[in-house]
């Protein structure tokens, strides 16, 4: 053993046998990390570093549009985002607010959720609690994957052909809401199924061991445990349909006020995305600006729903892990 290693051994001895070595601070740690990343000695290491930088740049390019969009809407749209915009109905020449669209979007989401959420949650309960893995389950899963892939305009065309014309419901709140409900179903079904799957079997067994029936166990224990996951799925689905335009063009009609009836022309309803489209298709310059204010409002609403959904799901995963 060389004298050199004897010397190091002495210091190491002290540190190791006494208190653990003090942690280095986060700044110094980051600097050391950066230094170790940039240290290049061979060609292979150079290639490694170069590719890492390339991957990092790619990531920046990918997220760049998000900031470009938010900045554009904020710069042009923010000035129009007044309280009046939300509280007044459109006036002559489409001046005034977008209260019709905000109320309309909320009503459409309520109808869509009222129909779509129970259907898909119950469907998910059936396939994950009642049906054995097999043909029935894979059929239902396959169906919801296919539904999730169907383009929104196809839902729009179908809603028009089936609900508006064939069932003779006519355009309006009901037709628009039902079409959106169809679009919600696959998302809610799949996330609910996933949430139910994550409930440990032991929890169900504990309930059965107390003499509970399957029905009681499902409703009192399993669904309760899966509830946050289900809420996440529902919120994600709501966030998605809130921004849908294409399914509504031929089903919801449009209106400058809020609907006063369930059916008939009085039930025609405006929505935020449809309003943006109407404004941007209009040559009047002030409507171009207003389209951006409306888009900013829609964006904030959608992102808020999305952030809440992600927050809940993250909290749940942390609790389960």
């Amino acid at each position: 053993m060389s004298s050199d290693s004897c010397a190091t051994s002495g210091t190491a001895n002290e540190t190791a046998s006494s208190a653990p070595e003090p942690e280095i601070g986060p700044t110094r740690r980051s600097l050391l990390w950066l230094k170790s990343q940039l240290l290049v000695k061979t060609r292979r290491e150079a290639k490694d570093l170069l590719l890492k930088i390339l991957f990092a740049i790619t990531t920046l390019i990918v997220i760049l549009p998000f900031f470009l969009i938010v900045i554009q809407l904020a710069v042009t749209g923010l000035s129009g985002l007044t309280l009046d915009l939300f509280t007044t109905f459109p006036g002559a020449s489409l001046t005034g607010g977008i209260r019709n669209a905000i109320v309309g979007t909320i009503l459409l989401v309520l109808v869509a959720g009222g129909v779509g959420i129970p259907l898909s949650v119950l469907g998910a309960v059936y396939i994950s609690e009642y049906s054995p893995p097999g043909r029935i389950r894979s059929t239902v899963e396959f169906a919801s994957d296919v539904l999730a892939g169907i383009p929104s305009i196809v839902f729009g065309a179908f809603g028009f052909a089936f609900i508006v014309v064939f069932l003779n419901v006519g355009m309006g709140l009901v037709s628009g809401g039902l079409t959106l409900a169809f679009m919600m179903m696959p998302t809610v079904l799949r996330t609910t199924q996933e949430a139910l799957r994550q409930v440990p079997v032991s929890l169900r067994e504990a309930s059965f061991a107390l003499g509970a029936t399957k029905w009681t166990t499902t409703w009192r224990v399993t669904i309760r445990a899966a509830f946050p996951g289900i809420v996440t799925g529902v919120l994600l689905a709501i966030g998605r349909v809130m921004g849908e335009t294409a399914p509504l063009i031929f089903t919801s009609g449009n209106s400058l006020t809020t609907p006063t009836s369930i059916l008939g022309p009085a039930s025609w309803v405006a929505s935020l995305p449809f309003t943006i489209w109407a404004y941007v298709s209009d040559p009047r310059p002030y409507l171009q600006v207003k389209a951006q204010s409306t888009a900013l409002a829609l964006l904030v609403m959608v992102l808020a729903v999305d952030v809440v959904a992600n927050y809940i799901s993250r909290k749940v995963t942390r609790r389960l892990v």
Binding site: T59, V62, I63, P65, F66, L68, I69, Q72, L73, T76, S152, G239, R240, M242, G243, E244, T245, A246, P273, I276, W277, V280, Q288, A291, Q292, A295, L298, L299, V302, L303, V305, D306, V307, N310
Partner: peptide
């Protein structure tokens, strides 16, 4: 970064369209 990506997925297509049309 993952959060930004999730938010990009949530932006409605009409908003993307509006931005593309205007910018």
């Amino acid at each position: 970064l993952r959060m930004i990506v999730e938010m990009m997925a949530a932006i409605p297509s009409i908003v993307y369209g509006l931005w593309a049309y205007i910018v």
